[in-house]
Amino acid sequence: MSDVAGDVIAIIAKKKRVDKPTVDLSDKLLDLGLESLDAVEMIFDLEEKFDIQIPYNANTNNPRTEFETVGDVVAAVEKLVAQKTS
């Protein structure tokens, strides 16, 4: 697992609202009980952690459909981190 993945999982694990001992790449955000404010807080934490800008408008983006799984979030963050350093 990449460093990014570990950090993303740690951030999502803080926000989850279900009783599940571990967060895995295959977990669906919906199944972790993330609500709209949780998503906004999660995005803030990710932006702060990786010094990236995640384009996100709560009116038009639905993190639970655009990012179905934890792995989808990891992939998106890895892409933004790569863009930053390239």
Binding site: V40, I43, F44, Y56, N57, A58, N59, T60
Partner: peptide, 20 residues
């Protein structure tokens, strides 16, 4: 900005395509 609820240009209440 941090709430992620603002429209970038125009406020379109009740309309399709509203962005905040």
């Amino acid at each position: 900005e941090a709430m992620r609820v603002m429209a970038p240009d125009i406020c379109r209440p009740f309309s399709k395509g509203r962005m905040g």
